Computed example of a mutant assay.
Amino acid sequence: MTVIIFVLTLWYGGLFFQSFFLHRYAAHQVFTMSKTAERITFILTWIFQGSSYLSAYGYGIMHRMHHAYTDTEKDPHSPLYDANLFAMMWKTKNIYQAINQQQIPVEDRFTKHVPQWKRFDTFASSRVSRFMWIGFYITFFMLFATAWWQWLLLPIALLMAPIHGVIINWFGHIYGYENFKMKNTSKNLFPIDVLMMGEGYHNNHHKFASRANFGVKWHEIDFTYVIIKILDTIGFIKLKPVTAKV
């Protein structure tokens, strides 16, 4: 039971900071936060994503490119241009790394106000950091796993962030329902998105990219947005007024 709780904590903790910080803040700037709050969130993102830590800079730019070029040859990840989900993940990894290492030119519109903490990212993205987390996860499983099948959860812990990404970027463009007819394949995966904390309302998000709340219909509860509203109320962040879609 301890291992299951541990993996669930990583799943929802890593997912929250990917959605809250990397997606809604770094990529879409739907709210603002102080520099201190931003640095705290960088560190919490590293703690919960661990071995699969993603840079806000690389993620933010790549996601903006995804919205600008959705389902075209320039899209960093699209089921229409990748043979399978593993090919898409590998392509996405290469583009993400090239952006972070400044190996490819990036238009100014994709870099505007994207948060970056170079010194911290250098450490958090390093092999030392990733192997440290891998060692911690393996040690935790050795201490608390009580059945052989629990070890099947270890790869999920190690690759949490890419798994979150592929669920939305692959399956969220193939399966589900549409609230809005778009010039792309985006779908809403779940009527009530408990698994992905609102990220599964992908069709809604492509229609209204600048909205903090990804839910549109009454039953589409965006659990990340609920937390965002709480953080806005206590002053940790400041939500921006809803504007037209980006």
Results as ranks from 00 to 15, higher is better:
residue 42 F to P: 01
residue 75 D to I: 08
residue 55 S to N: 10
residue 62 M to F: 00
residue 59 Y to K: 02
residue 59 Y to L: 05
residue 46 W to E: 04
residue 72 T to I: 07
residue 90 W to K: 15
residue 93 K to W: 08
residue 39 R to M: 12
residue 49 Q to H: 10
residue 53 Y to W: 07
residue 60 G to M: 11
residue 80 L to R: 14
residue 91 K to R: 15
residue 60 G to T: 09
residue 87 A to C: 10
residue 88 M to T: 02
residue 46 W to A: 15
residue 62 M to A: 13
residue 53 Y to R: 05
residue 85 L to N: 05
residue 90 W to Q: 15
residue 44 L to V: 06
residue 62 M to N: 12
residue 43 I to A: 14
residue 67 H to R: 10
residue 90 W to S: 15
residue 93 K to S: 11
residue 45 T to K: 00
residue 54 L to D: 02
residue 79 P to S: 11
residue 93 K to M: 07
residue 66 H to D: 10
residue 95 I to M: 13
residue 74 K to S: 10
residue 55 S to W: 07
residue 84 N to F: 02
residue 65 M to F: 03
residue 37 A to T: 14
residue 86 F to H: 06
residue 43 I to W: 09
residue 76 P to D: 07
residue 48 F to V: 10
residue 84 N to T: 04
residue 66 H to N: 13
residue 79 P to I: 05
residue 88 M to E: 14
residue 96 Y to D: 12
residue 70 T to P: 00
residue 74 K to N: 13
residue 48 F to N: 11
residue 62 M to L: 12
residue 70 T to N: 00
residue 76 P to M: 06
residue 67 H to C: 05
residue 44 L to I: 09
residue 72 T to K: 10
residue 41 T to V: 14
residue 43 I to L: 13
residue 68 A to S: 13
residue 82 D to M: 07
residue 82 D to W: 01
residue 67 H to S: 06
residue 81 Y to R: 03
residue 81 Y to V: 01
residue 40 I to Q: 07
residue 54 L to H: 08
residue 96 Y to K: 11
residue 80 L to Q: 14
residue 98 A to N: 09
residue 45 T to D: 06
residue 84 N to I: 01
residue 49 Q to E: 15
residue 42 F to H: 15
residue 87 A to Q: 12
residue 88 M to R: 02
residue 83 A to Q: 13
residue 57 Y to T: 02
residue 69 Y to D: 09
residue 87 A to I: 00
residue 43 I to H: 07
residue 66 H to E: 07
residue 81 Y to S: 03
residue 64 R to A: 01
residue 63 H to L: 05
residue 75 D to M: 10
residue 70 T to D: 00
residue 93 K to L: 08
residue 79 P to V: 03
residue 42 F to I: 11
residue 40 I to K: 05
residue 59 Y to P: 00
residue 52 S to A: 14
residue 70 T to M: 00
residue 95 I to C: 06
